[in-house]
């Protein structure tokens, strides 16, 4: 079966953008199969109008076997209205995607207040706490790395190396800012949702703002420039092609390990018996990943 892989750079609050995108892909004959950490995976199908919707399950834990017993009941109700479950979002497992091939289906939620309440519960119980932990950890890690890199600025090295260090510091500061921006966005989103639940506002529109869309494009361009400069420096200054191959190889292994951990999470959710057992299993995966990363240093 023919498949298509598309980079998944959506944020969870883009529920309307995601829905519109999946419907546009279905019109072109690509039906969503999986939402992975890095990719949206489609399978080839007949081009036709298909409605999509995102469902939030605030009661569901991160590594809880999916669907839960309550989730199965939810699915039965949805199937009766013509909505079929498609997939869970790998990195945000409380979000499940449904599709419906009827021309005018009954919406999954016909009470807007309930829709906002469920979304708000998910934000408060699952998403914002996770972002808070991530922001604290990433900020500390990247700031320390940036300070460490700054030490190289005062070392008697060549200008090319100093420029590279400056670029890396800028990138680390950006990576420190991103989780903080995500946390601020999530808190703003939660505030809008709670107000909408009480009938005091329209609620979030589920779309990436033009400013954030522009910021994302700029950051992609800047990251690409930094990466190109790094490649040039490694090849021209750092030890030639062998050094470049070594760097690319190490980075590829890191990305593969990160991807593999995501697939392991999906597997555990599909086949695991309980959340506790899944966390124990995931612990083994983390240890294995650690050893692979240590091994890459001796290979490359």
């Amino acid at each position: 079966m023919k498949r298509k892989y598309e980079l998944n750079n959506f944020e969870p609050y883009q529920f309307a953008d995601i829905r519109d995108h999946l419907e546009a892909m279905a019109l072109r004959g690509w039906r969503l199969e999986r939402m992975e950490r890095y990719f949206l995976v489609y399978r080839r199908g007949e081009p036709k109008p298909v409605r999509y919707a995102l469902v939030f399950h605030p009661e569901m834990g991160y590594l809880e076997p999916a669907p839960t017993p309550e989730g199965e009941v939810y699915r039965d109700y949805c199937r009766q209205a013509g909505w079929e479950p498609v997939t869970f979002w790998s990195t945000v497992p409380q979000i499940e995607v449904y599709c419906n091939e009827e021309p005018h289906p009954i919406p999954l939620q016909t009470d807007r207040s309930i829709q906002w309440r469920v979304m708000g519960d998910w934000l408060e119980r699952r998403y914002v706490p996770r972002l808070q932990t991530g922001a604290a950890a990433c900020s500390l890690m990247f700031l320390l790395s940036a300070i460490f890199c700054a030490l190289f600025l005062i070392a008697p090295e060549d200008w090319a190396f100093r420029i590279l260090t400056l670029c890396l510091i800028a990138l680390l500061i950006y990576l420190t800012a991103v989780p903080l921006i995500q946390l601020a966005s999530a808190n703003r989103w939660l505030s809008q949702v709670r107000r909408a639940e009480e009938g005091l506002g329209e609620g979030p529109d589920g779309r990436l703002s033009p400013l954030l869309r522009w910021t994302r494009k700029v950051s992609v361009v800047l990251s690409a420039l930094v990466l190109l400069y790094y490649v040039w420096y490694t090849a021209a200054q750092g030890g030639g092609i062998p050094s470049l191959v070594r760097s690319v190889g190490q980075t590829a292994v890191l990305l593969l390990v990160w991807w593999g951990m995501g697939r392991a999470e999906d597997w555990l959710r599909r086949h695991g018996r309980s959340q506790a057992a899944n966390w124990a299993g995931y612990g083994f995966v983390v240890v294995l990943a650690f050893f692979i990363l240590q091994l890459r240093n001796s290979i490359f």
């Binding site: 469902v55 009941v73 939810y74 109700y77 949805c78 009766q80 209205a81 909505w83 009954i106 919406p107 999954l108 939620q109 016909t110 009470d111 309930i114 829709q115 309440r117 469920v118």
Partner: peptide, 9 residues
């Protein structure tokens, strides 16, 4: 009409 999600909740 009652949506399935609304019914469940």
């Amino acid at each position: 009409t009652i949506g399935p999600g609304t019914l469940y909740n």
